[in-house]
Amino acid sequence: MNPAAEATGPDLRRNFDLKDEIRDYWSKRSETFDLAFGHRIPPGPEFAAWQQPVRAFLGDEPLRVLELACGTGEVTRLIHDLGHDVTALDFSEAMLAVARKKHAGKPRLRFLLADAENTMEPDERYDAIVCRHLVWTLTEPQATLGEWFRLLKPGGKLLVFDGDWAKPTAVGRLATFAIRQIDRVIGPDNHYDGALSDRHATIMQNLPFADGLTVETLMPMMKSAGFQTIEHASHQPIAAAQRKTANLRNRLRTFVYRRFIVCAHKPG
């Protein structure tokens, strides 16, 4: 046990241990993360579909953007290609190593090893914050939304891509059954959580959003943190683009969970 963690009390000590587990899990996944369906964003229709909400919510003018939990730098590319000045943050050195290699030599791009829940960045530094598949992993979500509010300039925007990864939809349960049958016939897809899926499940059980993250849960929390004019957009165009080039098993995966896009505005 880290002595600093020992001094923080039982709740924060539990979060310290959990965050270590989360960091270790994602660091191990960094080696094959881009091979997993839904994480890499290939050029073409899928890239355009992911980029469209960023363009729509952030606008055409170059901004100073903080990307949280950048991982291997896939979302980094779509933000940076729009002309924004990007700081891409992650707390896994292994993930950042992949991202740095992928984007070597690019201007207007800074990589930062830091904790998305406590960035240590200055007040009102950024015009926008973007994150994909991060909010469901937060150990202190309400406090973290307050941290992100602090980092934004007046009029800044928080753009979240996420989903309810705990409960498949009604159609998703049928899709999951079909995926299991495919796995039995041709073997499992070892790059899709694969051998680490038990660890993934254990981590999720210990998170505040263990029962699932929904728009209906997230929006009031954003308002409590000070955000206003919260907009909700459909993830369906992205899923439809993914299905254009995916195999049957991966097309089925796009139906399993309810995913969403939310943009929250800090008052100007």
Rank of each mutant, 00 (worst) to 15 (best):
V65D: 04
E121M: 15
G105D: 10
M120T: 10
A225N: 03
A264S: 13
L12D: 14
A94R: 13
D193M: 11
L89G: 01
A104N: 10
D211V: 02
S92C: 04
G71E: 10
G212S: 06
F37C: 09
N15L: 11
A4F: 14
S234E: 13
D198A: 12
L207K: 02
D24H: 10
R180I: 05
P45D: 09
A178M: 11
N250M: 10
V98M: 05
W148K: 04
Y126L: 08
H39Y: 15
L158W: 01
L158H: 01
P45N: 10
L134V: 07
D123V: 08
P42N: 05
R125E: 15
V185D: 08
R108N: 15
F37H: 14
K266Y: 03
F111V: 06
P45I: 06
G212D: 00
T217H: 04
P43V: 12
I238F: 10
K106V: 05
L18Y: 00
G105A: 09
N15A: 15
K266W: 03
P154K: 05
A201W: 01
F111R: 00
V98T: 08
E61K: 12
D164Y: 04
G73A: 06
H235I: 08
P208W: 00
A4I: 12
T144Y: 02
H235R: 09
